[in-house]
């Protein structure tokens, strides 16, 4: 198990940290959504990497196919991708309405007093 053999997992960690950092540090609401996407994609890569079996092919019933990769995580990730798309769409929809209401999409420009009669 050398460093290169775990290449995918290194990428997962790097992507995850980049995405998470963008979510935390960026004030631009659209950039936050993009960061969230990168973060989610790293998890997708993680699931797909772990299901790969060395020398395995696609799981199709056919003569001569003995070793195949585990298809279940792929299916799970298809579901997770759908969830991710829905989340992104909703987040961007909210950003559009925030821009309509405040005229900006920078988090530090839309801070307003918390206390009032509302």
């Amino acid at each position: 198990m050398d460093v290169l053999g775990l290449f995918n997992y290194w990428i997962v960690i790097v992507l995850m940290m980049i995405g998470f950092y963008i979510v935390i540090s960026h004030g631009n609401l659209v950039k936050k959504v993009v960061g969230l996407n990168v973060f989610q994609v790293s998890v997708f890569v993680f699931f797909i990497s772990m299901s790969k079996v060395r020398g395995g092919t696609a799981p199709i019933l056919e003569e001569g196919i003995e070793v195949y990769s585990n298809p279940l995580p792929h299916v799970l990730i298809l579901t997770a991708i759908v969830v991710g798309v829905a989340t992104t769409a909703l987040a961007l929809g909210l950003v559009v309405r925030i821009r309509d209401a405040y005229g900006t999409i920078e988090a530090d420009e839309i801070i307003e007093p918390e206390e009032d009669g509302a």
Binding site: L36, V95, E112
Partner: peptide, 15 residues
């Protein structure tokens, strides 16, 4: 402010 509240909840909830 409901919009920003929902947005923040979305980010935290998705994480």
């Amino acid at each position: 402010r409901a919009l920003t509240a929902a947005y923040n909840y979305l980010v935290m909830g998705t994480v």
